[in-house]
Design a binder for these strands. Structure first.
Lengths: 290, 290
DNA sequence: TTAACTAATGCGAAAACTGCATTAAATATG
DNA sequence: CATATTTAATGCAGTTTTCGCATTAGTTAA
């Protein structure tokens, strides 16, 4: 049984037409027919009900379509990862990160990496769903920066630094002149909130914060992109609460007022990772925070 | 890339010897050598560092050994399941169950199945780790009876019946004569406990029960096998708490005293299961509880 | 230095795979 | 109702791949 044959099966299972499928995969109809027969024989399972006119998946075929689709993707991911391990310093390392670090920490970090491992290629992704654990364990990313410590036993999670959470207000906002930093005075302000209703770590931290100061902010806009929010604050559309990191977005006209709460940045990678370059990359991340 | 080739690789990765491996898999050394070369070429990854004397896995090879071992097992499981789906009523259905139901419910159930689906083969397992969800989702079992409702969105979980939890004491135990059923009088009794420290549902239910009646029983023996405990009670080694089902173990000299607490039995199967026989089996389980 | 060991490779035979052309059965068309 | 069209299976012959044998070549042990 060839992975290729399984792939042929998956395409045929979608097309349900031998000729069209054969054309798509650049083999003859007869060859395809025999590949499918060979699969069926090896499995001892009929995959398609076919008369001379129609092709239809059997129940077992439907099941294998589901399962094999998943497995083939996993194989692909595994083989890519093996390739990366072999290539080492000349290979690719995938990094996912929260948007907040893209102004200060991440550029610094990339600069250090570039000067020390000049041949290393990086794949940078800002994940939307924030499911760092799954991304790591499925080998879709190699290093994940996160705001919370990952507790999975197959993942190493190391704190890099803490930073304050800040109130972001327009430069000439009345609150800037206030001596007291009593947040509850802001009850009637319009808040622009990043991911309050999402399941991100920062989102739940925000919820806690609002409960602590005992008020429900009037939120006008919710965005999943912090950089957007900073710009909206500059345009006086509202105020917001963001990690200190956004200060380095250098947005004129926005004042960042530090609150007592802190938020951390963690670096996460797979336990027992064989790719030495990944360990090196982690070391550099730790180093620049010393 | 053939699944067979991957299997060859895995055996060689263990043996680290071409000749011995070739012998094991009944092909010539030259053929094996070329299969490995073909794998390496197709992946673009060197799997073994080999000179004329030694064979050693590369890092990428180690990685693939780990990953492929897992994937090949999964493939095997998937293919078995496909076979079962095809065979339908003449196939095999795997069932896991808690030991308590093996005296009354399970024999009844099997009898009904046998008379209605006489050609169906059953694989019965009493799982030790009780991780029903994983067993189901990995296709290692098709139907899992459990004491708690499984909440996984990919699993259907249906309550079959409730039964009381019972105090199991020797027939001539002093408590049998008591009019009051005040459990706390049993503070100084020796309890034989099934799975109190394990993570089973019944175990945690027991813990709650002891907290409710506000006493810590003197446990002398812990067994993971309820049937054993009933026998030990008969021999007056101690008393115990068990689901009502154990009454049907027909152990002479043991008296079952019903408590107020109840415990349920659920039947669980995969959502969207394609094997129609599995649905039929579920229906029979529901039917005999009406 | 020689012997023993072991992975790779050349080679011819066997097996598997390929596409072409054809067959066979089902449906569509007139 | 006869004929044309569609489409999966199959016979066949050429090509490619795979197989094992025998040999080579490099390493280690005696």
């Amino acid at each position: 049984m060839t992975l290729q044959q399984i792939n042929y099966f998956l395409i045929l299972a979608k097309e349900l037409h031998f000729w069209k499928t054969a054309e798509k995969i650049f083999i003859s109809q007869s060859s395809l027919s025999r590949h499918i027969q060979s699969l069926e024989e090896e499995l001892g399972v009929v995959l398609f009900e076919r008369d001379k006119r129609n092709v239809k998946l059997t129940n077992a075929g439907k099941f294998l379509q589901e399962q094999w689709t998943i497995k083939l993707k996993e194989f692909d991911q595994i083989h890519r990862q093996a390739k990366k391990i072999e290539e080492g310093e000349f290979g690719v390392v995938s990094i996912t990160y929260p948007g907040s670090i893209s102004y200060k920490f991440l550029p610094n970090f990339l600069e250090v990496l570039n000067s020390n491992l000049p041949d290393l290629k990086l794949e940078l992704t800002e994940p939307t769903d924030e499911n760092h654990e799954k991304l790591l364990l499925d080998y879709r990313t190699d290093i994940a920066f996160s705001r919370d410590q990952l507790k999975n036993p197959s993942i190493e999670s190391l704190k890099l630094y803490s930073e304050p959470i800040c109130l972001a207000v327009p430069k000439d906002h009345w609150f800037v002149q206030q001596k007291s930093r009593d947040i509850s005075k802001l009850k009637n302000e319009k808040f622009l909130i990043s991911g309050l209703h999402q399941t991100t770590f920062f989102g739940s931290l925000l919820r806690e914060l609002f409960i602590k100061y005992d008020f429900e902010p009037i939120t006008t806009i919710e965005s999943d992109f912090g950089g957007m929010i900073v710009n909206l604050v500059a345009k006086k559309i509202g105020i917001s609460i963001l990690p200190y990191s956004y200060k380095f977005s250098n947005t004129k006209d926005v004042k960042f007022i530090e609150l007592d709460e802190k938020i951390d940045l963690y670096i996460n990678w797979r336990k027992g990772e064989l790719n030495k370059t990944i360990h090196k990359v982690v070391e550099f991340a730790v180093l620049i925070n010393k």
